[in-house]
């Protein structure tokens, strides 16, 4: 949206909402539109990145199982990634929970 710049708080909020509420109309740069899970509504999830939606939401709300981590063996797999922006590197590591 390089030609239209939101300049007050309300505009920024609306612009963000638009990015989050993708539902099949738009996608962010990092992910192709056919990746599973991104199309589930993400009302409360503040991350615009569809990747995280796949990883967190897919196994709960989506029938598509392709990218679902093995949550049975590794129940706390996401604990090291509270914030996708800061902690994304941790996503590749399975926490050693003994």
């Amino acid at each position: 949206m390089s030609r239209i710049k939101p300049i007050n708080t309300k505009a920024q909020k609306i612009a963000e909402t638009v990015h989050r509420d993708v539902r099949g109309y738009a996608f962010s740069d990092c992910c192709a539109s056919f990746a599973p899970g991104w199309e589930v509504g993400t009302g409360d999830n503040p991350d615009p990145c569809p990747w995280k939606h796949d990883l967190q939401l897919c196994w709960v709300t989506c029938y598509w199982m392709g990218q679902v981590p093995d949550t049975n063996s590794y129940g706390s797999w996401l604990d090291t990634c509270n914030n996708i922006n800061d902690d994304w590197r941790n996503l590749c590591t399975i926490p050693d929970n003994g």
């Binding site: 030609r3 239209i4 710049k5 300049i7 007050n8 309300k10 505009a11």
Partner: peptide, 10 residues
């Protein structure tokens, strides 16, 4: 919505 935007000429 009381939102405020800057636009380019196009």
């Amino acid at each position: 919505t009381s939102s405020f935007y800057e636009l380019d000429a196009t």
